[in-house]
Design a protein around this nucleic acid. Structure first.
Length: 451
DNA sequence: TTCGGAACTT
DNA sequence: AAGTTCCGAA
């Protein structure tokens, strides 16, 4: 069906070089991950939550990860715009939300229009080979969500079908330490100190305080300042003005990603692709890195080093909560953009009947750079559901082990042993095919991106 | 208003 | 798979 959604037509120009966290091409392969090209509802919700201009529509509120849909009709309308479903209403949207059923988010019982993200697990789709569940980073997350249970990797598992062909990603998988086969590939997280050691935030992105942004690095297409996979404490980019483009508009997320990565990554690109030299894509955009200097990933500082008080963004709960949350829960902010263009009146939704509806501003389409996936045990209500790490991760997926550690009780991040920070995120031996192709779990191979 | 079954679409 | 649509029950 042809969708003439205005939101699709009015997309701002797509930057040639995208953030390192844009989904790689293989993530959009219909055959590999059907539907992945379209933004998912939870993703969209996060997008709205990220945008301050939607604070009146939907906003973080209450517990960690909890948000309130202040204007259900507007949220539904925006969602309908995004999905080209002019008849979308909150009734339908909420039905879809319920299908998340405690995985990515769940309804907060007793609180009207209130849902809660399960932020206990975060996965960078762009780094699907990374098992955050076994990293200090990931474990710390779990620390937030109850602490003592093993991380749930069901979502990781769900992402694994999109994993790159591990057999070609030899430089990150230590095949020498494990038997070949489904469980033979163990990612050496120590080779990725920027991910394995990243500190964590304990608030959703929009609740976080303003991260430091040093003048020399003010990226127009900044990537996520909350990402654990950042390197600099000081050179944090700002969020993009409207970054949630539909993924199909990404010129080449993979190459863009690599080209934006610091040297070890960008150098993996073919000549002309790496670093600032890669700014010559289809859309003629810019990565905002003057002088060809590759942008840096931003390492979120430990909470102690960040101005945590969230007084600049309207959310009255931030400060109080920050006092009690563990400083170890990582939240990957998304490069989230505004959405939508008003489409006029749709048919009356349940909430329209309730409130008479409300014309709220519309805005540009967008898509996010990375995917936050809840892998949580949904500890709030369902500790023993089918989503457990032990069951899901260790079967026919590449298992990722961090130096054999498998802590179940997480120390505060501050007590974690200092992780040596390599000057480069990856060893120079990293081979390109790691990101360049995928082999599906069912054996279908793809070679969509040759670098 | 919430919850969820069921059929259906993309 | 991830919703969308419809609808009934609580």
């Amino acid at each position: 069906m042809d969708c003439n959604c205005v939101s699709d037509l009015l997309l701002p120009p797509v930057p040639t070089l995208w953030t390192p966290f844009a989904f790689p091409d293989w993530a959009y392969k219909p055959e590999s991950s059907p539907g992945s090209r379209q933004i998912q509802l939870w993703h969209f919700i996060l997008e709205l939550l990220q945008k301050e201009e939607y604070q009146g529509v939907i906003a973080w509120q209450g517990d960690y990860g909890e948000f309130v849909i202040k204007d259900p009709d507007e949220v539904a309308r925006l969602w309908g715009i995004r999905k080209c479903k002019p008849h979308m209403n909150y009734d339908k949207l909420s039905r879809a939300l319920y299908y998340y059923n405690k995985r990515i988010l769940h309804k907060t019982k007793g609180k009207r229009f209130t849902y809660k993200f399960n932020f206990s697990k975060v996965v960078l789709v762009n780094y699907p080979i990374l098992d955050m569940a076994n990293s200090p980073f990931f474990l710390a997350q779990n620390h937030f969500n109850g602490g003592s249970t093993a991380p749930d990797c069901s979502a990781i598992q769900s992402l694994f079908p999109r994993l790159p062909d591990s057999s070609r990603a030899t430089s990150l998988f230590d095949r020498g330490t494990a038997a070949p086969g489904p469980e033979g590939d163990k990612l050496r997280l120590d080779s990725l100190p920027f991910l394995g050691s990243a500190p964590c935030y304990s608030k959703p992105p929009s609740l976080l305080g303003p991260y430091p942004r040093s003048p020399p690095f003010d990226y127009p297409w900044g990537f996520n300042p909350y990402l654990p996979g950042a390197f600099s404490l000081n050179n944090c980019p700002k969020l993009p003005p409207g970054s949630l483009y539909p993924s199909q508009f990404y010129p080449n997320p993979l190459q863009s990603s690599l080209s934006q990565l610091p040297n070890p990554f960008s150098s993996l690109l073919p000549p002309g692709e790496a670093g600032g030299g890669g700014d010559r894509g289809q859309t003629g955009g810019t990565n905002g890195t003057a002088g060809g200097q590759p942008p840096r990933l931003c390492l979120p500082p430990y909470p102690g080093s960040l101005p945590l008080g969230r007084s600049d963004i309207g959310n009255g709960t931030a400060l109080g909560e920050r006092d009690r949350v563990e400083p170890t829960t990582p939240i990957l902010g998304l490069g989230l953009g505004a959405v939508g263009v008003g489409t006029g009146s749709d048919r009356q939704s349940p909430t329209e009947r309730r409130s008479g509806g409300g014309g709220v501003k519309a805005d540009p389409e967008s898509d996010s750079d990375l995917e936050i996936t809840d892998l949580s045990d949904c500890s709030s209500e369902n500790e023993n559901d089918e989503f457990s790490m032990g069951k899901s991760l260790n079967r026919d997926r590449p298992q990722i082990v961090l130096d054999g550690k498998k802590a179940s009780v997480l120390p505060p991040i501050s007590s974690l042993p200092p992780v040596p920070v390599s000057p480069h995120p990856l060893p120079a031996t990293l081979t390109l095919p790691l990101f360049g192709s995928t082999r599906q779990a069912d054996g279908h191979s793809q070679n969509d991106t040759q670098l």
